[in-house]
Amino acid sequence: MFEAKLNEASVFKKIVESVKDGFKNCNFDCSEEGISMESMDDAHIALVSMKLGVEAFSSYRCDRSISLGLNIESLLKVLRTANNNDVLTMRAEDDGDLLTLVFEDSSNPDRISEYNLKLLNIDQEHMSIPEQEYTATVTLPSSEYQRIIRDLTQLGDSITIDAAKDGVRFTAEGDIGSGSVSLKANTNVGEDEKSIDIAVEEPVALGFNSKYLTQTCKAAPLAPRVSLNMCKRIPIFISYKLQAGHFSFFLAPQISE
C-alpha cells in the first residue's frame, strides 16, 4: 500500500506542469524515502530528475517500492481540478492498476473529490549519471532566469551561456539579429533571494537549443532560485531546490565538431 498526503496540491501540480511540454509518460517511483521521477525526452536531449522526500508530505506510507506509470497529460487533467491549497492524498495498492487522487478543500471540509487514474506500464531505463564536479555555478532568481530565456528565445533558436568569474552572459543570434543579457555577480544585502551568485573556477561557455532551455524555465514557480552548473563539453545541470527535495534538468549541449 502506498499513501502520501500533501498539504498543498499545488506542489505536485507545479511539478507536473513543469514537465508537460517535453515528457509524455513518466514513472513516479515511490519508496520509503519518498517519490522520485526520472525521464528523458524523445529526442534524448533533456533529462528531468525529481525527488520529493518523505518530509515533503504531511503523512507518508510506502510498504513496498512501486513505480506509478502515468501519462502526464491525463495526470494534469486531474490535478487541474484542484484548488491550489487543497489537501491531496495519493493512494495505490501494491498490485493495483490505479492511482487514486483525493482532494480535500481546506476552506470547505464538506467537499471531497476523488479521481482514479489508470496506471501505465512504462518501459523506461534509468540512466547512470556520473558524479560530476562543475567548474562554474551560477545561482540566480528563477524569475530572472525565466525572463532571460523567454526574451532571448525570440531572437534565435540557440542560446549560449557564458560564465566567467565576474559575471554570466546569455547570448542568442538569429535571422533578425542578436541579443545578450549580462548579469554581474552581486549580493543584495538582506535580499538573498535576489542575489546573483557566481562561483567559477574556470570560465565555461556552452550552447543550447533554446526550446529545451525554455522547458527548464517552466519549473520557476517551484522555487525562488535556480542554479546553473556547467563544465566544458558536458550537459548543464539546472537545479531547483525544493523544501524537501529537488527538481532538476540535465540538458545536452551543442558542441562544435
Binding site: 534509468h126 540512466m127 550537459p235 540535465f250 545536452a252
Partner: peptide, 14 residues
C-alpha cells in the same frame, strides 16, 4: 557549425 549532442553521449543506461 555546432552539433546537438545527445544525452546518450554522456549517460549510459543503468
Amino acid at each position: 557549425t555546432k552539433k546537438q549532442k545527445s544525452m546518450m553521449d554522456f549517460f549510459k543506461p543503468k
